[in-house]
Write a protein that binds this DNA or RNA. Structure first.
Length: 423
RNA sequence: GGAGAAGUGGCCGAGCGGCUGAAGGCGCUCCCCUGCUAAGGGAGUAUGGGGUUAAUAGCUCCAUCGAGGGUUCGAAUCCCUCCUUCUCCGCCA
């Protein structure tokens, strides 16, 4: 959520910045709601003030043994007025809040202008796409040929966009998970965390999935309803909801491995083949809560943590900065890591690392105590995948494939596979 | 699932329908004292919001004692609903 104060005082400047990412802010609507809010809030508070002072007077008069009747008559219709004013104010504030909750974050100045992923800016490449002396196969054919990946059985059990993994491939997914967690906890300073996979609505509001993107989520009926997490970002970031962190406990670094669940509404026909886009997938997520002055540096650092995994696994990739039009709702800046997939002959997203500034923190009321001012201030949140495990599995299969259809195991992963060198 | 108890500031913990935004303690900050350490003395210390303002400075007002309703001129205090935690019983990976 954007700062309501800034929205009030710098409405046009903010609208201009939002236009960069293709969001048209209804400035006239905001302005008129704001005017009404101001008028009603002043009125309401005046009436409350009157009620408070009058009531205090009644209390004192009563204590002094005076006649209260005339005082009671004087406040007779105050209650009705106050109630009416409060109700009106409540409605306006509700409307304002609904509007505010649907306004995306402002893109950082360094984010390139653009409408779609076509305008994303490539920052750097690492590694060379492997050369094969045979025709490269994609992970679906590689996996099904050996019976390691079974999409038909998954379709029977659940439906499309699911997979059953068997034997060595299932084990390699587990190995990748262990490897990534070990890297982040032992080399990068994150605290391994186990979190709920079902979350309440408040948590989803906190990180920005609600109210706008409910159709992307799997909802579990019940009282109250719960939602399957689309990413560990939701539970991890919500650890900090309504918390004031001491300066000495900053920054906070969390890493968790969780399954992620996405309805993939609106992506019909996209990536229907294989494991690229599933309703359920495994992901390692890094979340940091940092001092506001540090967030830009930490985004670079956290992106490096995700890159380190790809480098250790010897997977070629590139880093792109998302353009304004491709930027996620809550992010002010995002780097995507795209891994080379020989089966598709292109780079595909395998990690997304974002700085949210204070956007999530404001929704969450996640704060730290600034030792200089001794006051609580909104902290900044940064997160990134490190990495999407399912897609990493795909990348390893395709980049390490051999002519006979077997798959070599990256050296870094071999200790996690009982020392084996190939599947 | 059944029975009972409880939810107050960073933490612990008092709290009679008005004098309570909230005693007391701990912690923290600043000052004094002390050769160092320990101890001692004094002052300060919730959060969000509105108005005013160049101001995130002052001043002022409002709200908040788990959440939401209600009673009342007035609610931390009374009533209702919900949530959470704890204890006991049942069930269970």
């Amino acid at each position: 959520m954007l700062d309501p104060k800034r929205l009030r005082t710098e409405l046009d400047a903010i609208a201009t910045q939002l236009l960069r990412r293709g969001f048209k802010l209804d400035t006239r609507g905001v302005h008129s709601l704001e005017e009404q809010r101001k008028e009603l809030q002043i009125l309401t508070q005046q009436l409350q003030n009157e009620r408070n002072t009058q009531s205090k007077g009644i209390g004192q008069a009563k204590a002094a043994g005076e006649d209260i009747k005339p005082l009671l008559d004087a406040v007779a219709d105050l209650g009705g007025q106050l109630k009416a004013a409060q109700e009106k104010l409540g409605k306006i504030q509700e409307q304002l809040m609904q509007m505010l909750l649907e306004v995306p974050n402002l893109p950082h100045q360094s984010v390139p202008q653009g409408e779609s992923e076509e305008q994303n800016r490539e920052e750097r490449r690492w590694g060379e796409p492997p050369q094969f002396d045979f025709e490269a196969t994609d992970h679906v054919d590689l996996g099904t040929a050996k019976g390691w990946a079974d999409f038909d059985t998954a379709a029977k059990i659940s439906g499309s966009r699911f997979v059953v993994l068997n034997g060595p491939l299932a084990r390699m997914q587990r190995a990748l998970t262990q490897f990534m967690l070990d890297m982040h906890t032992q080399q990068h300073g994150y605290v391994e965390t186990y979190v709920p996979y079902l979350v309440n609505r408040a948590s989803l509001y906190g990180t920005g999935q609600l109210p706008k993107f409910e159709e992307d989520l799997f909802k579990v009926d019940g009282e109250p309803p719960l939602y399957l997490i689309p990413t560990a970002e939701v539970p991890l970031t919500n650890i900090l909801r309504d918390v004031i962190v001491d300066d000495q406990d900053m920054p906070r670094r969390y890493v968790a491995h969780t399954p992620c669940f996405r309805s993939e509404a609106g992506s019909y026909g996209q990536d229907t083949r294989g494991m690229i886009r599933q309703h359920q997938f495994e992901k390692i997520e890094m979340v940091q809560a940092v001092r506001p002055a540090d967030s830009e540096d930490v985004l670079e650092q956290l992106t490096g943590h995700a890159e380190a995994i790809l480098q250790k696994l010897g997977l070629p990739y590139r880093v792109v900065t998302l353009c304004t039009g491709d930027l996620g709702f809550s992010a002010t800046k995002t780097y995507d890591l795209e891994v080379w997939l020989p089966g598709q002959g292109k780079y595909r997203e395998i990690s997304s690392c974002s700085n949210f500034g204070d956007f999530q923190a404001r929704r969450l009321q996640a704060r730290w105590r600034n030792p200089e001012t001794r006051k609580p201030e909104l902290l900044h949140t940064i997160n990134g995948s490190g990495l999407a495990v399912g897609r990493t599995l795909v990348a390893v299969m395709e980049n390490y494939q051999q002519k006979d259809g077997n798959i070599r195991i990256p050296e870094a992963l071999q200790p996690y596979m009982g020392g084996a060198e190939q599947l």
